[in-house]
Structures are given as C-alpha cells and as structure tokens.
Design a protein around this nucleic acid. Structure first.
Lengths: 194, 194, 194, 194
DNA sequence: AATGAATGAGAATTCATTCAT
DNA sequence: CATGAATGAATTCTCATTCAT
C-alpha cells in the first residue's frame, strides 16, 4: 500500500515538474499558455491536468511557487540568520547571480497573471520585504546610512536584480558576469555604509 | 468649416481621453480590459470605439503613448540639454516625483500587452536608454564613479523609480514624499560621485 | 419649379450612375461591397446613399437593373420581332459579343447577392426564357431540329455566353474575338437546323 | 487500439457528413451559412465544429471537396482512359445525369465562397479543363468538327450541364429525364462530328 | 438635403472546464 | 485514473442603418 502510494507520489511529482517546465518554455517562447498546449507538450490528455490541479489558476499557482519558493527560502535564510550585515548582503548578491535565467524571465512575466499576482505582490513578498527589514535593522543598529529603509532597499534591488535582468537586453552578448557582479558589490558597499 | 473641424477634433480628443482614463481605471481595479467593458464604462456603444481606433491593439497603443509619451519627452529634454550632470540628475528625480500616480501603475502593467511591449521594451526605451547614455558620459568625462554604466543606471532607476512605485505598497499611508525625495537625492548623490 | 426638379433629377441620375460604376468596380476588385466603401469612393456621405436608396437591397437592385436591363431589352427586341429565326439568332450572337465585359463579370457575381437573386433568377429571366420560347417556336414551325427546347436553348446559351465568359480564363491573352464569333455561329447554325 | 481509432474515425466522418449535409441544406434554403446555424442544425455546440475544422474556411473547403471531388474523379477517369471519343462523351453525359441533385445546386452556389473559389475556378478545373483537352484531341485526330476547342467544350458543357441544371427551373415538375438525356446525346452527336 | 458619428445585432473564434467511455 | 470530444461563455470585430446637426 505504502509502496504504491510512494510510487504514485513520485509519478505525480514527475508530471508536475514536467508541467512547470512546459509553462516556463511557453513563457520563454511568448506563446499563449493554454491548457490544451500544456497538455499537448506534456503528452498528456487535457483532462489529466485536472487530476493534478483543480483548475488553471491552481496550476499556475503551483508553477509560481515552484519558481519563486527557492528564492524566498534562500533570501529568508540569508537575512534571518544573525550575522554581519555586509556579509549577508554579499551573500544575497551572490545568490541572486546564481539563479537560473528562467527566474528573471519569470519575474517579468509574473505580473501578467493577475489571478496569481492578485494574491501576493511577489516581488515584494519574495525579495523586498526581507530586504526592507534588513535595511531597517542595519540603519537602527548603526552601520548603514540613515535614510528611508524603503529607499535603501529599492536601491539595492535596482542595483542587484535590475542589473541582472538588464543583462539580457544589452546589445553586446559579451557581458562579463564577473565584472558586473564586482561592480554591483562595489556600488552597494560604497553607498550602504555611513 | 475650420470651426466644425476644430470642434470635431475637440470632441475626438475628449472621447479618447475618456477611453484612456477608463482603461487606466480598469487596470487599477485589476478588471479584464475588454472592448465591451470599455464601451460600457464610457457609456458608448461597442462599435463607437471602432470609430476612434482601428482595433483593440491600436486603442491600447494609444493609451500607451498617452501615458508614456510625456515621460519620454521629459527625460529626453532633461538629458539631451547640455549642463551639469548633477543638476540633470536632480531634475530627473524632481520630474519623476511629479508624475501622476497612474504612471507608476501603468509601468507595472505595461508588460501585459505583449503585442505592444513586444515592439519596444518601454522601460528601456523611455527611461533606461537615456539614463545609460547619461551615466556613460558622466563616467567618461570624469565626475562619476567608474563602474559599468548599466549597473549605475539600474542603481539610479531602482532608487528613484523603485522608491516611487513602492510608495503605494507601504502599509502606512502616511509616507512623507518630501522626506523620501530628499533621501533619494542624498543616496544618489553619495554614490554617483567619485 | 420644373427647372429645379429637372436639375435635381439630373444630379440624381449622375449620382446613381456613379454608384453603379463604383459597385461594379468593387466587384471587379473582389472587394467587399459595403455602404461605407461605396460612399467613400463616391465622395459622398454614407447617409446620403440612403437619400437615393431605401436600403442596401434597393441599391443593389438598382445596380442589377441598370446592368441587366439593357440586355433584357435587347434580347426581347430581337426575339419578339417577327422574322427569320436564323437572322434572329445571328443578331443575338452579335449583340452578346457587343456587351461590355462588365456584364459577364456581373453575371458570375450575380448569384452571390441572394437578396436580389432571390426574386428573379436572372440568367433565366434575361436570357433563357426568350431563348426557350424562340426555340419552341422554331421547332414547332419547322426549321429547327426537333429536340427538347430547353436542351436546345441551353446548347445555344452555352455556346454563345459560355464561350464569351471563358475568353477571360484562357491562358493566351491573344484570343481572336472574330474567329471565336465565327466558330460560334458555325456551330450553332450547324446544329440548330434540321 | 485500432478498434478505438476506427470507431473514432467513423464517428468523425459521420459528423462531417452531417455538417456537409447541413451546409447543403442551408444553401438550398437560401439561408445564411453561419457557424451558429450549422451547429444548431447539427445539434452540436458551436465549439464542437472547431474540433472538426480549424475554421470556417476549412469547413467550407471540406464541403467543397466532398461535393466536387467525386465529379472530378469521374471526369478524369472517363477522359484519361484511352478509347473512342464518342464513347467517352456518352459516358460523360451518362455520369453527369447520375449525380445527385445537390451537385447542380452546389454548382450554382460555388462562386459565393470567394476565398475557396479564388484558389481554383472549379467549374474550369473540374469539368472544363478535361473537356477542352478532350475536344482538342478530337479535333486534331480528325473526327471532330474543326472549331475553337473552347467553343466546342462550352457547347458540350451548356448542353449537358446546363440542361441538367435547368431541369429544376422548369415549371412542369414532370420532366422526363430519359427523354432529355437522349436529346442531349442526339444534339451533341450531331454537332460534334464532322 | 447632406453629413458622419453612434448604434447594436450578428458573426467568427478561443479556451477553461466537464464528463462519458 | 486517463482520455479527449463536447460544451458554451466570453471576446473581438463588421457593417447596415439611424438621427441630430
């Protein structure tokens, strides 16, 4: 019994992973995301999708969680663990530069799906909130420049995430990731400390 | 004759303005933007919309231009006029804080209409491109810190535009715009100069 | 008064002629025939068309009559006038080869407009009926071959009108109208007489 | 597996046949051919039609092929098989008189659907082209009267197909098909041979 | 009379969801 | 459970007709 259930769960997760992958591909290809197309690309009947998810909204929500969950966890881990603020910040930058390219793509896409975005403003929930709290702490405990923590957080977000996203738009395909990361760190360090 | 034409043009613009307003309202209310609904809210027949715009795409494009045009013009004017870089930057911040709240709303929404956004990545076209060029110039001619101009531009964008947008998400409705603007200026000044 | 009325009627007819011309042009160009387009091409307001015709059906009916009326009259004149059947037939062929190219074009088009065609099957009314009566007479009075008059009439129709219409479809643009007409006459003569 | 597929294909064809029948009925009743009406008369939801055909054009094309295909095949078979020209001609007449009444109805209608008719002038493709080639051969190899082959072909078309179509328009419902066919044959025989 | 903006019925098409097999 | 045909609400767009100016 348990063995059967395990197996079922395994298959279940495999299918779900396939679905997530397919949706991301569709986003990348700027194709409309229809249940028909997801099913077709997963070599699964349309009706089957409804065995895994109650409806399209639930499906998209799952994709959402799958993509953004790890980031949220990573950021939480970095900022909730006590330690030197500067070290935390560097860890945050480091982790941001490690994430899959899909993520920034998805970040751009995410506001499209109002049904999902309705419930949570993801950018805020996943990145900004931890960042704002981090800045507040840093300002209150001394080391950070004393400005509005929201402003400081937005500065960090723009410099780190913005730079990451805009890499794709650069005309020259030869963007040197290492150089960019160093410049980001330099900039953030320079500004954040008193 | 001319009088009739003038009048017609006036009415025309009035109706179009109404349509733009309605679309922005729909975006704000996170309601689906259908021709039916636009017509209903404008107290106009569906067919009438098609007297003003060839199709939905054209209508959305007009909304787009109406919202983003002034910003583009403003930014172009600020950065294309020769002068002290720091003064230009302050002007840019000043103008950003003057724009209607609709603008930031629209900025978040804009990527929805792929057909439009496809053609130009507006954030890039309207704000980033002038900003990047401005940073490049400032770096080359000396006064600005020598980092990747894209990174510097993203830093400015995040600090200025990001802070503006996030004002709406702040829990406390009592955000002091003046204080925020001053902090933004302080931050940008501090970082940008060598 | 009368002068004014005359003038009005003159203008009236001029406009109507323009409308007919425009509709035929639209048919030729395989463009949809909309009131909008007719008005535009006639440099007249859409509403004005409704001063000349009660509705689109009436307008199309007028075009119809204007194009087919002369043919009907011609055929009636030829076949109703007593005389040698063979001479009549040759006159019919002669007149068919004289008509404007628009006519055959219109003939192909005419079945499209069901609203008009509903009321009369034009091919039948305008050409076939006189032809059938003519054949019946010729058969009864002796000179024509004794077959079903409908069949004989269709033979004539096909040979004369069919040949005319198919001239346009011929690959070689160099169709010698005179030669074709002579062949048509030869063929019809040969078959029709006992 | 194969059984399921066979069954599916069977149902598929049944539905498609029903759709063809419905469209022909609509043509017969001179009713507008809308997807709504087709669906209603087939007791099927509008969307279902789109499971069978990509769009209206494809649906109409299928009707087209279904009606005209057999005729084309028949004519091709008759005229491409070597043999005595007169025998071929008689076979052609025979086959024409065998076809369903729907066919002549459809023949009248066919030019309506410009999108389809555009691509091929069907009358030409299906009947005239084989007929013209047949006449050319007969003229060159001797037995047929030496006139323009197009004219000869049009004569045959008019006599055979025209007579068939006009049967419906005859006032007296009592048209004796056998008598008509014999007259057609007599006429064609008489004229075609030198 | 002439104008042309407004109207709204009607047509094609898409797609999430259901359900019989 | 899986399947995929059927469903029909929702959406965009067209165009004949009306009517206030």
């Amino acid at each position: 019994m348990t063995a059967v259930r395990k197996k079922k769960e395994l298959v279940d997760n495999l299918v779900k992973a396939e679905i997530v992958k397919t949706v991301l591909t569709l986003i990348k290809e700027e194709q409309p995301i229809t249940m028909d197309e997801i099913a077709r690309r997963c070599s699964v009947a349309k009706g089957t999708l409804y065995n895994y998810f109650k409806n399209k909204k639930a499906l998209m929500h799952y994709v959402h969680q799958t993509v953004l969950g790890p980031i949220r966890d990573s950021n939480t881990a970095i900022f909730e663990t006590p330690g030197d603020p500067l070290v935390q910040l560097h860890k945050f930058i480091e982790s941001a530069f490690c994430f899959d390219k899909d993520v920034s793509l998805y970040f751009q896409f995410v506001q499209q799906e109002r049904t999902v975005a309705n419930q949570i403003d993801d950018r805020f929930e996943v990145v900004m909130r931890p960042l704002i709290r981090f800045c507040s702490d840093g300002i209150q405990s001394g080391p950070f420049i004393d400005v509005d923590p929201y402003v400081l957080a937005e500065m960090i977000y723009g410099t780190v995430i913005g730079s990451l996203i805009s890499i794709q738009s650069r005309g020259d395909g030869t963007s040197d990731m290492k150089k960019i990361k160093q410049d980001v760190i330099r900039l953030v360090d320079k500004i954040i400390l008193k």
